[in-house]
Each structure stands twice: as structure tokens, then as C-alpha cells.
């Protein structure tokens, strides 16, 4: 573990990503402290530009504080991003592990199932699902999870297929370990590295999907989200460009942080792939 942490500290991209992420998470957790109260409240004159007195990011056409919206919006984005990824991981790992370890007809069936979900245009499916089942936090998280799990399943399956053939797995079989035991203790720990990397990228993708849905009006109306702010600010783009620009930057920074973090993880877990320091 320490060895891993030490190597991660050396990864520049990983550290930048991690630091940014920590800042964002802290911001989201302490949103109520930094900007207490309802972000939908009208608190100032409408259409104030950024860096106005007391309003770092300005106000929108109804006089609402943009900065408050950004900070509270972080909560939703991060929440939905992580929640949907956890669900997608759960489903994907199980499907992939079973398909990759047991092979045969079970593998065939599960793979057809996975392929089906990969064939359907994913963003459209997300739209359809959220539209039909009304936009709530639950439906959004579910919809994003539904379109995100197939790549994980594929990856886990591939890892399991190769690992299953490894001699140390065979040794465990000859030693009489149960199948469940082998999957959990022999195969899975070795399969996790690429999955962890993919997971961090998946959170990033989930946030992008969520913001896209919000932009189209399919976000949960009870909460303020970055995508919604961009969509709302679209009509004012000529006069109050910051209403759309700033929330987008927030999304960009968050997704970038996650990507950098994932890159750092990848560098540490797969040292031979990072070509810049080859011997």
C-alpha cells in the first residue's frame, strides 16, 4: 500500500487531479457553509457581471448568485457521478466476472446481453429512460448506470479470461479451493487495477452525461445543476455570457481532475505503459 502511495505521489498528473478533486469534494460538502441557504433565492441585482461587489461570478437574469449555484451544483454532479458509477461497477464487475470465469453458454448469454446495451446509442437511451420515468435523482442515476456498465463488464471479462488460465489460479484449483474463493481471492485482486482506472474515467463520463441531460431540461428540478445553469443561460448569451460560461468551466475542471486522477492511477498501476520514463 505504501509503495503504491509513494509512486502515486510522484505522478504529476495524478497529484494535480487528486488535489483538485479534494477541493471540489470539500466545496461540495461545505456548500451550505460557504453559501448558506437556497441557491435559487434572489439575492442581488440581475445580470451583474463576474467580479462585481459581493458576487464573484455575478448574478443571473433573476438576480440569483451564480457562485452559489456553482457550489451547490457541485454536490449534485459529484453525487450523481459517484452513485451511478458505483451501481455500474457493481453490475459490470459481476456480469464480467461470471462471464469471464465460467465461459460456455453463460458467457455467450451475458455477452449478447452486454452487446445489446452497447449497440443502443447510449445518450439517447439515457434521454429516453429519464424522459419516460420522469427526471428524479433516482431515475437519473439509474439511467446513467444503465448506459455505463457494459465497458466495465467487457473489461472485467477480458481480465478474468486471461487470469483464469494463469498457473497460480490452477494451483489454487488443485489445492481444492472453492470456485467462489478463487474468484474472490485469486482472480479479482489481480483484475482490479484496470477496473479502478476505468472507474475514475467513468465518474467523469457520468458527470458529462448528467450535465448533458440537465442542459436538455431532464435534470431533477428540485436541485440546481451546472447543466441546467448552462441551459438557462443560453438565452442570455449575448448579454450575460458568464451565465453559461462559468458553469461549463466548473464541469470542465471537475472532469479534468477526474481524468488526471485516472491517468495518475494508470501510471502507477501499469508502469510499463507510461512510455516517458522507459529504460
Amino acid at each position: 500500500m505504501n509503495d503504491f502511495a509513494k509512486r502515486f505521489l510522484r505522478s504529476r498528473s495524478g497529484m494535480i487531479g487528486l488535489v483538485l478533486l479534494i477541493l471540489l469534494v470539500l466545496l461540495a460538502i461545505f456548500a451550505d457553509v460557504v453559501y448558506p441557504g437556497d441557491p435559487w433565492r434572489m439575492v442581488g441585482r440581475p445580470n451583474l457581471p463576474p467580479f462585481s461587489e459581493g458576487f464573484m461570478f455575478g448574478t443571473d437574469q433573476l438576480g440569483r448568485d451564480v457562485a452559489a449555484g456553482i457550489v451547490h451544483g457541485a454536490r449534485i454532479s459529484l453525487l450523481i457521478g459517484f452513485a451511478s458509477s458505483v451501481v455500474a461497477l457493481g453490475v459490470g464487475v459481476v456480469v464480467g466476472a461470471v462471464a469471464g470465469y465460467f465461459s460456455g453458454w453463460l458467457d455467450d448469454v451475458l455477452m449478447r446481453f452486454t452487446e445489446f446495451f452497447q449497440t443502443i446509442p447510449s445518450f439517447m437511451l439515457a434521454i429516453v429512460l429519464v424522459a419516460i420515468f420522469s427526471p428524479t435523482l433516482t431515475s437519473i442515476v439509474t439511467a446513467i448506470a444503465v448506459v455505463s456498465w457494459p465497458p466495465i463488464a467487457r473489461l472485467v471479462r477480458a481480465e478474468f479470461l486471461t487470469l483464469r488460465q494463469r498457473d497460480f489460479v490452477k494451483a489454487a484449483q488443485v489445492g481444492g479451493h472453492s470456485q467462489f474463493n478463487i474468484i474472490l481471492h485469486q482472480v479479482l485482486p489481480n483484475a482490479l487495477s484496470p477496473v479502478i482506472v476505468m472507474a475514475s474515467l467513468m465518474v467523469a463520463a457520468a458527470i458529462l452525461i448528467e450535465s448533458g441531460l440537465s442542459f436538455l431540461g431532464l435534470g431533477d428540478r428540485n436541485y440546481i445543476t451546472w447543466g441546467f445553469m448552462i441551459g438557462a443561460g443560453r438565452t442570455m448569451i449575448r448579454h450575460a455570457w458568464w451565465l453559461s460560461a462559468i458553469p461549463g468551466l466548473a464541469i470542465f475542471v471537475t472532469v479534468l481532475a477526474l481524468n488526471l486522477f485516472g491517468q495518475g492511477l494508470s501510471d502507477v498501476l501499469n508502469p510499463r505503459l507510461s512510455r516517458s520514463n522507459r529504460t
Partner: peptide
Amino acid sequence: RAQMRPKIQIIFQDPYASLNPR
């Protein structure tokens, strides 16, 4: 079968793949 399994054991070819790296 499970009981007699330990009685027949195996040594593999590739020393780099026969032990769980973790």
C-alpha cells in the same frame, strides 16, 4: 474427491506465473 485432492499435487513450468503476485 475433495479429500484425496491434496494427495496429488503439481509444479508448473513458468516460475513467473505460478505464484499470485498479490
